[in-house]
Amino acid sequence: MDATLLLMQGLNGLQLGVMLFLMAAGLTLVFGVMNLINLSHGSLYMMGAYLAASLQQQTGSFLWAILLAVPATLAVGMVVEVVTLRKLYDRDHLDQVLATYGLILFFNELVRMVWGPQARFMALPEALSHSVVLFPGMRYPAYRLVIIGVGLGVGGLLFWLIHHTRLGMLIRAGASNREMVNALGVNIKVLYTVVFGLGAALAGLAGMMAGPILSIEVGMGEPVLILAFIVVVIGGIGSIKGAFVAAVLVGLVDTFGRVLLPAGVSSMSICILMAGMLCWRPKGLFPAHG
């Protein structure tokens, strides 16, 4: 493998990692702060993609579709939290898994009823639909560079939100000691709704960014969800920093695994990474709960 190809695959790994980070950030927040295992996170990813595709058809603009679909998925997430998940916080994880698995089935059939069984299309803006020459002999799809940019930007924004704002302080406090936050008079119900909405919006954003690359179809969230869970486990539950580092790590390992290893082994490479990480650091790279 020559240097150009190596760099190219590095960029591919980074881009995959950044997409995974958008998914995993919401998941790790919800898991860490609310102690809720949310299997329906992938459904919110799918909802984000479908909403953006429809909005793009209505408005004719990719940017407007994203700007409108993010608050829309935030709202969907908040409604889901208020209507169903609120009743599950005191239950054990198995009940949560069961209920949120039910949500996956619900959203899949909902999408099929509203949008039909055929996959939807989301066009790229003309300026981003081609590949750019980074330097002689190396072309890279322009849109994937945008994804890397958006992912890094959102990562920075989240880092600031978590570490330099009052909301972030509450989220961090909630992740470390739920009862104490409640005892100090913080309205934990509202905090939970906000955190879940935020997680939903992040998942939705990941879905929207994936829309032009991938097929927007029923069940598109499930394969990504599994990778996102692996990222959360490796990064440490509840840690945004951990999710970022782990997502990029998983993106790179998956990409180079697929390129360098035979087919049978490469599909295991991420699981081997996770198993190794669990032996070395059972709580993940940057655990939020001390």
């Binding site: 695959q9 591919n12 996959a119 991938l214 097929s215 390129v259």
Partner: peptide, 28 residues
């Protein structure tokens, strides 16, 4: 869902043509 890594390898191999089979969503 993502074929970026495989497509980079494909480009580097410089074949005359590609034949693929990807039904349904995978094809999209």
């Amino acid at each position: 869902p993502d074929y970026a890594a495989e497509l980079a390898q494909l480009r580097a191999a410089k074949p005359d043509a590609v034949f693929c089979f990807y039904p349904g969503g995978m094809g999209i």
